[in-house]
Nucleic acid binder design. Structure first.
Lengths: 344, 344
DNA sequence: GAATTCCGCGCAACCGATTGAAGAAAAAAC
DNA sequence: GTTTTTTCTTCAATCGGTTGCGCGGAATTC
């Protein structure tokens, strides 16, 4: 590439015409004679001419690239979102540039700047758990880049958002446990600086209230990291502290699995001694023993919805139309499996 | 972005100087007076000036973007590879553009062209299982784009490659089963058009031969798709056909899990009636019941190695140095777990 | 035969940066 | 006071395309 880039100018030279004529010929502009068009198309095919989209992007101030920043990629949910986004992007002629913030705000800032520098036409982001700093996002919005947040969103920013119905999902999970006969439901809650953490907690609390079960703050235990290890150690602590409980509703599946593993190691039977339900329905959850109940949030759907929303805004702004950001809620579903069923 | 892009020209206008001076001032060129530099830097920071990398790329014929094409993304292995690539790319100031071929050759061709059009500085690819068509890859190599293939490689192409030691891994897996007392080991093999499929099969055969066990071609059953469903139905077929067997070595973990599920449904106990081992060590495998033995191939390491190899080539060619493609082999490791241990 | 229309194509500016070379102004040397 | 040197800045070309405008010649019209 460095040296041997075949350009329109090269075609023009070979045919003894100007590059403007080549440009028009390639796009079948009516001004150009059929003979010239044929010659240009023939040579272009022969030399396998590929236009330089950098030049196009620069000229048109439009890159046909959507940026997406996710906290992790080795993660079913985010991987699914990405594949949903890709699907929509492909169909609309866009490419996707992905950055992984690794749950680091610092990295997220670098990524955001890089995305802006390469002039993505729009940006999709799910924030890190780490922080509340929004200045980099405000800045990119101010520069006029359409932004859509998904899953981990922030109320402070007036942009489009795509979320799972976390409250409803958590409510369903809790209600399900109650209906299975559980009375003492522990909630391993997520990070408080993210709406998804707060909403799930609220759903849990609402369900308890609706079923006239007292809400015991000491049964809401924060697991902000949300990894296997944290789920496990937290569960050990709970068991060792002799807290009374017969069920666990975890903020995500991995935490739930950690808790399940800990309970099993302590000789508790699932679901007889303790029912467990997670959130997110990871692909692996159905393969566990017992298979883990969960709230399904379709990453693919979220990705598709977010990408469509973003494209809608991009197009509106290209036509100088007004666009009012909106929030779309993707439904979540209760998936009942062995880890929470048939409580005696 | 469409309208309000703040450029060097804007800085120049505001300060009443030329844009060349601005350019030099921003990179602390010694020709520029300290006063001018200060003024430019101050204004640039004030307006949050971000250079347009499209313009830079066009000028320098260098985009600082690495392309990567993977067949799937909702897949621990590929997700890990991507995160390994990202890690290296970040440190070296490159961005990563990802395409997902969805196991379709057609899509792979489109992706390759798109990557070339956006003038990636180099391309990483793991091919689809589907086909043997290499023309699009040959074409991009001819155009001078450094290419590194990983995992699913092709011998026909003289480019750098990064692979797992598939033969050795399969040998270890088979040997392990033999040492656990298995005599009738079925191999659910991968696609024959990919080296990884053939090498794993060869490793299996070699181990059998070394341990003086007759190789029975009817015990090598192709599972080219390599998904859960295929593993399951294939296993049902095997059981129903009354083939004699006491172990299964599958080409990948998902196939192994499918086989395990089928065996369990048919009332077989694992590992007592049938030992199972997979390949790839997916994150979920250790969470199964029983946990699945597997051959670990570190996606992250493969990604890191591949990205480094690619950057090495990119840099060599930038300096007009010769670069001879080479193949690097990332070691694989036997992970012994419950699905294959303690055979009586 | 002169005026008009139309067709096919080229010129040159533009997108936002970089960069070699030339130029202008100030400082130093004679 | 003139020449030389130094210091700082601008000019203009370049990367690879796109696009408004204009130009020359042939065809058409009167």
């Amino acid at each position: 590439m460095r040296k041997g880039q075949y350009t329109m100018q090269d075609i023009a030279n070979e045919l003894g015409i100007s590059k403007s004529t080549v440009s028009r010929a390639l796009k079948n502009h009516p001004d150009i004679s059929q003979d010239t068009k044929d010659a240009v198309h023939k040579l272009a095919k022969e030399k396998d001419y590929q236009p330089n989209s950098l030049a196009l992007s620069l000229r048109h101030n439009k890159s046909f690239v959507l940026g997406i920043i996710v906290p992790e990629i080795v993660h079913d949910f985010f991987a699914n979102v990405i594949s949903g986004v890709q699907k929509v992007a492909y169909n609309e002629g866009y490419n996707v540039m992905i950055c992984i913030s690794n749950e680091s705000t610092e990295q997220e800032i670098v990524d955001t700047k890089a995305m802006f520098s390469s002039r993505v036409d729009g940006l999709l982001i799910s924030r890190t758990k780490e922080s509340n700093d929004l200045s980099h996002l405000k800045s990119i919005v101010n520069k006029g880049v359409p932004l859509v947040m998904f899953d981990r969103v922030s109320e402070e920013l007036d942009v489009s958002k795509v979320i799972t119905d976390d409250f409803q999902g958590a409510y369903m999970a809790t209600e399900h446990l109650i209906k299975q006969g559980c009375k003492n439901i522990i909630h391993l809650s997520g990070p408080d600086n993210l709406a998804i953490g707060r909403d799930r907690k609220s759903g849990y609390i609402a369900a308890l209230k609706d079923y006239k079960i007292a809400v015991d703050e000491s049964k809401i235990i924060p697991c902000p990291k949300g990894d296997l290890e944290e789920g496990k150690t937290t569960m050990f602590d709970i068991i060792d502290s002799n807290t009374e409980f017969d069920a666990v509703f975890a903020n995500n599946d991995v935490t739930a699995i950690g808790a399940m593993n800990a309970a099993k190691e302590k000789g508790l039977s699932i679901p007889n001694d303790v029912s467990v339900i997670g959130f997110g329905d990871w692909r692996l959850s159905q393969l566990l023993d017992p298979p883990l109940s969960s709230i399904e949030q379709s990453g693919v759907d979220i990705g598709i919805t977010a990408a469509k929303l973003l494209l809608e805004q991009i197009r509106a702004e290209e036509k100088d139309e007004d666009f009012t950001p909106r929030t779309e809620v993707v439904e979540s579903h209760l998936i009942q499996r062995g880890s929470s069923l048939q409580k005696k």
